[in-house]
């Protein structure tokens, strides 16, 4: 995908000398490739509140009624559920959090999938791929 987008970018750089027929093919190929990524990438639900600074990575999906910030970093490809509230927290890449999480001063390890609802934590590292709260690896710091 990235490659195709780069090609589109360079082919329209000089608008005077665009070769229309090549562009048309490229355009088509790109849209076709897009179909393979059939989902919506980045998405923010209803009623989000952000208190700066907040960093959102690429391809982040965020549920309804969240409160993010201040001082929140969300890495790439993360998914946060509804009613998630984060402050002073670093969420590394490819993390999934369930609904109704309240985290303060936390780091969520990359690739963690916390697939359950309701979690309230402070001052800790969280890690794991789990459907039950009890199975998370946790280190207070």
């Amino acid at each position: 995908m990235k490659e195709l987008i780069e090609k589109v970018k360079s082919s329209i750089k000089d608008i005077e000398s665009v070769d229309k027929s090549t562009l048309r093919v490229l355009f088509h190929d790109t849209l076709k490739e897009l179909k393979n990524h059939h989902k919506i990438d980045a998405y923010i639900g209803d009623f989000p509140t952000f208190i700066e600074p907040v960093h959102l990575g690429n391809n982040v999906r965020i549920g309804d009624d969240v409160l993010l910030g201040p001082n929140v970093y969300i890495g790439n490809n993360c998914e946060l559920g509804d009613y998630v509230e984060l402050s002073n927290t670093i969420v590394l890449d490819n993390v999934k959090l369930g609904n109704n999480f309240t985290l303060e001063n936390c780091i969520i390890a990359n690739d963690s999938k916390l697939n359950f609802d309701i979690l309230k934590e402070k001052n800790c590292i969280l890690k794991g791929i789990t459907d039950i709260k009890e199975n998370i690896e946790k280190l207070d710091f």
Binding site: D46, F47, P48, T49, F50, I51, E52, G69
Partner: peptide
């Protein structure tokens, strides 16, 4: 300054 964006609130 600190900005808060309330979305719809």
């Amino acid at each position: 300054t600190v900005q808060i964006n309330t979305g719809r609130e």
